[in-house]
């Protein structure tokens, strides 16, 4: 007997496998490690921010700032490498400290002022993108030998597929996210917060500390996502990744995490990300479909998945009420 709480996760995996099978039937080449490698590489930054977003959503919150933080990160790296003699590793460390502190500050505001996360992180989104604009309004190319080395690092998989460094970083981010959310005391607090049990299990200052840590973690992941995006594109651009926060939320929901918080799996989000990437890959392979079909397909998938999730949950808990 499978735990009903796992139904959404299993459904996500099943949908991904079925979708991949359909793709394979039409385009056998899609099963190659090359396509699989690209799937990981192309969606690496999205996957990393989605890890942070999963933790935020598990706690019942939301973080709208991540897309802007990615853009800021790219610009920050590009400008620092251009204007200072700092080594990229130092720049990365600085950046991660900055975005983590930024997330922590948003968490503190949310807790201290009792303001909804939606609004606080919306202001954070304006701020992060605004600062990116202040650094530069143009796209800045990144040119640094060490950076180039990172960009071209990959491991060859059987079948000549490339497992790039950023793809590996994404997978590692999911492992870390999984451990943080499901294996630590902090993770337990996150679930407690999302499940609305704060009065029972979390008292006073621990709610505040957990909230700060949640958004700090999301900030950290957004910063890491920014580094990966910079490696992926080789440049920093303040207008990049607009709306990524919403895509990330969608992947989390497709990944089987309840948006109300308190239930979900970090690894579900990985499959959410891969499913979305798969749709894009399919549309590229098909070649005749216009790009807008991607959006419609993602919307339909989101709808189908949420309806499925509702149905599964209703099966799990047979409760009907006539109350609207």
């Amino acid at each position: 007997m499978i735990n009903p709480r796992r139904y959404p996760l299993l459904a996500t995996i099943a949908i991904f496998v079925i979708a991949y099978a359909i793709c394979y039937v039409q385009f056998p080449y899609m099963l190659s490690t090359r396509v699989a490698g690209n799937l990981l590489t192309d969606n690496a930054y999205l996957g990393i921010v989605a890890v942070g977003m999963t933790v935020v959503i598990l706690s019942g919150g939301i973080d709208l700032s991540v897309g802007a933080v990615i853009a800021f990160s790219g610009v920050f790296i590009a400008v620092m490498l251009r204007d200072t003699g700092l080594h990229p590793v130092l720049v990365f460390a600085l950046l991660l400290a900055l975005t983590t502190a930024f997330g922590a500050a948003m968490g503190a505001l949310i807790h201290r002022l009792g303001m909804p996360p939606f609004i606080v992180t919306l202001a954070g989104m304006f701020l992060a993108r605004g600062v990116a604009y202040m650094l530069t309004i143009d796209s800045v190319a990144i040119d640094h030998p060490f950076f180039d080395t990172l960009q071209s690092t990959y491991w060859l998989m059987p079948g000549k597929g490339r497992l790039t460094l950023i793809g590996v970083i994404m997978l590692l981010a999911f492992v870390v996210g999984h451990v943080v959310a499901h294996r630590t005391r902090f993770g337990a607090n996150v679930f407690a917060l999302g499940g609305g049990q704060q009065t029972a299990r979390l008292m006073g200052s621990r709610v505040g500390r957990t909230t700060v840590m949640i958004y700090a973690f999301s900030g950290l992941m957004a910063g890491l996502g920014g580094i990966v995006f910079a490696l992926y594109t080789g440049s920093g651009y303040p207008l990049a990744t607009v709306g990524t926060e919403l895509t990330a939320i969608a992947t989390v929901v497709i990944g089987g995490t309840l948006l109300s918080g308190g239930a979900g799996y970090v690894f579900g989000t990985l499959f959410g990300v891969l499913t979305m990437g798969l749709i894009q890959t399919y549309i590229v392979f098909d070649g005749t479909l216009s790009s807008w079909w991607t959006k419609i397909a993602i919307g339909v998938l989101l709808l189908a998945f949420i309806v499925l999730q509702k149905a599964l949950l209703r099966l799990g808990t047979p409760r009907a009420s006539a109350l609207g």
């Binding site: 948006l259 216009s290 807008w292 959006k295 419609i296 919307g299 989101l302 709808l303 949420i306 509702k310």
Partner: peptide, 22 residues
Amino acid sequence: LGIQPIVATLILMISGRGIAQL
């Protein structure tokens, strides 16, 4: 269906732009 407003309207937000482009 009892879907949370933020998700329900996110569906239209994402796919709607595709519909408009269509």
